[in-house]
Each structure stands twice: as structure tokens, then as C-alpha cells.
Nucleic acid binder design. Sequence first.
DNA 1: TTGTAATTTGTACAGTTGTACAAATTGGGT
DNA 2: ACCCAATTTGTACAACTGTACAAATTACAA
Lengths: 223, 223
Amino acid sequence: MRQSLKETLLRHAGKLFSQSGYNAVSLRDIAKAAGANVGSLTYHFGSKANLLREIYELHTRPMNARRLELLGEARRISNPDERLMAVLRAYVVPAFISSTDGDGGGAEFTRMRAVLSAEGNPDARKIIADAFDETSRVFIDALAECVPGASVEGLIWRSQFLLGALYYALVNPERVTRLSEGAVDGEDREAAVNQIVEASYASFRSLSTELAAPAPLIMKGNN
Amino acid sequence: MRQSLKETLLRHAGKLFSQSGYNAVSLRDIAKAAGANVGSLTYHFGSKANLLREIYELHTRPMNARRLELLGEARRISNPDERLMAVLRAYVVPAFISSTDGDGGGAEFTRMRAVLSAEGNPDARKIIADAFDETSRVFIDALAECVPGASVEGLIWRSQFLLGALYYALVNPERVTRLSEGAVDGEDREAAVNQIVEASYASFRSLSTELAAPAPLIMKGNN
DNA sequence: TTGTAATTTGTACAGTTGTACAAATTGGGT
DNA sequence: ACCCAATTTGTACAACTGTACAAATTACAA
């Protein structure tokens, strides 16, 4: 047995949800994509809401584990500016790039979260609320340490904007391509990660009351 | 006649779409909210897709007009940093605050756009594509003038992040309140506008090759 | 092989969807 | 008062939704 039907269903459901949201995708769409019967979905998951919950639980934990792992590494950097950059990367990278295989999260899962949060579907809302963890708060604390003197208000809002930027980069990459008339590729995720990190680096750093040097950017090659 | 049924229908449809998206709201939901019959919707709009199109057209033009008006004022500022701030406000404010009455755009319409773009519904996709105008490009040009030496890539991506931040601030304001344990009110739109403008000010300014003074922030009172 | 549980299939059900259209009602000019 | 058009209502329709469940199939231990 190479892959159980349940896993196949989860995979296809996640893919479809990330493309079209929760409401627009029917159980029959999922069954058809997976080459299975509608009944197999109710058998394995009981309900559509529970299917979503299982997708969510499958990806959330590994993604946040990876984030915290990278955060641990970042925290060992003594220079606050370099540390700020590393902390931001620790938050963003696992949301964009699948760690090793198709296991935890990656862009597809993050895109699904983005679409779900926008839909505001009651099922999804409950699942998201239930799956809430402390990871975001841990990151905000870590960011606060990198930006001495920053207000809570500023930190919270900027972390909100960071997530919004993350989401929108995955939800509407065509806009980047179209707006630049093809000069910039919105689908280039490596570039997107670097841009998000650099942009939020600047926005967080500006909160510091101790602005000494004018924001030394660590470039990664692509610009 | 105080308000035509058509206007009432448009108003309620826009409200419901901005709350739950396009797919999740049925014509019967809209009719019920407006205290009218389902048939009146097909009579006035022909189809659900066309109803959305009319909502879109009702708000897009006034909102962009207001943006360009404010942009004109901003362009007269000679100091590049102050001008950058004003240009950003010109883009953000009309998307958040209804100009005078319940006419053009405001937060509700922007929220609807955010939800629609995330849903990726084929109907909505086509309408958004058709309604596309040059406003965004005009703003990017204006921003480029405020940030000498900035790369196209950097400008495009940051304008993408700006829109993502804008959208997410309206889509998920509870997160701000929850994350700050009530210390920051995510529903406070005036604060949100100021935070978005300040954050993107910093992110755009960091693109400049001529970073002279360390980003003089113009405070507006609330922080 | 046989028996039993797990899985998969097929089908049926009640409810909802967008749309179409005949009938009823309304509005305003003559 | 009348008429004609615009509007509003009610209802019908086929397609699709999530879910339930009996029947068929498969997997696997004894």
C-alpha cells in the first residue's frame, strides 16, 4: 500500500480548498479529484467541517514546530538587527516553503488559511479558533526584544500587516506580474519571501526608539 | 420615493457580500435582508454575477476618484518624506473611510474586495479584471518619485504588501484584539489607517538609496 | 479456506441554489 | 376614468448540496 485513500482525500481536499475556498468546493468535487466515491468522505471524516479540521491539524503543528525551531536559532544572534531579520525569516519561511517533503504546511496550506480567514465561514471560524496556539505571541515577544522601545500597539499592528502581506502574496500573485507588466514574477516564492522579510524588517525597525545606524540591510543575492 | 428598491437591494447585497463572500450569500438571503422578493433581484440585475458587477461599479469609480484627488494634493508637497507619507494616506484613507455619506467605497467595499479576491470565484475574477483601472499604477509611479533609487521589484512588492495589509486589517480585526489580549482595538479604523501608513512608510523608505535622516515620523496624535 | 471487521460503493433523501416566467400590483400620463 | 408600461410577487424548475445508509467489496487473522 503506497498511500491510503484517507491520505489521498486529505491531499486533494487541501489542494481544492486552497484554490477555491471552503464553500465553493463540494464533497463531490473532492471525491472526483481523488478518484473516489462521495461516501468515502463521510466514512473517513463524518462531515465536511471535520474534513477541514483534519487538514488543519495535519499541517498546523509541523509548521509551527519548524517556526519555533528556526526561532530558537535566531535567538542566539546577538546583534539586534541581524536577529530581527532572522526572527522574521523564521516566521515567514515555514509558511511559504514545505520543510522537506509535502508534509507540513508550505505555501498551499498557508494559502488555504488565507482564503478561509477571508471567507469567514462559521465552520472554518470555529476550527481556526480551536487550533489557535501561542506561536504568534511567542514571535511578537521575540520581535519586541529586537526592537527596544517599541509600543505594543505598533508591534501588534505590524505583525498583523506581516500576516496580511504573507497571505495576499499567496492569494493574488498575478497582481504583481500584471502591475509590473511582466517585469516582476509574482509566482517566484523565494523572491516573495525575501521581499516580505525585508519590507517588514524596515517596518518593525522603524518602531525602535534607538535608531542608530540607518537600517543595514542584509541582502540575499536577488535584487 | 425615499430610496428605490434597486438601491436597497444593492446596499444589502454589498453588506452581505462583504460579510460572508460571494458564494456563501444566496439571492434569497439578500432578498430577505432587503425585505423584498427573490424575483426582484433577477428583474433588476438579471443574474447574481451582474449584481456583483453593479456593486463593484457603484463604488470603484468614486473611491479611485477620491484617491486621485488626494494624490494631487500630495504631489504638491516638495519634501520627499512628507510627500511619501501623504501619497500613502491618499491611497489608504479612501479605502477605509467613506468620503462623506454612504456613497463611494469605504471599509465595507474594501472588505468585500478582500473577500472576493481570496475566494477566487470565476464570476468575481472576471468582474475584478474588467473593472481594473490604472489607479494602482499611478500610485506606484508617485511612490517611485518619493523614493529615489528604488528598484521596480521592491516598489511592486511593497505595494502588494500594502494592499495585503489593508485587506487583512479589515478582514480579521479580531486577531489584533485577541493577540494583544484586548490592549489594542482591531476595530479602531483610524488607528489602523495610521498604523498602515506608518508601517508602509518605513518599508518604502527603506528602498531609497539616499537614506539621509533616520525616517522622521509625522505623528498624528494617537500613539 | 473461512469468518469478521474495515473499507468502498451506490443510491436515496431533504434542503438549497440560481434562474425563468406568468400573474398580480403599482405608477403616472392622458 | 382609462391605459400602458414598469415593477413586484409567487411559484416552478432542474441542478446541486451535505449527509445517511444498505449493499458490495476488500483485507486480514484464525
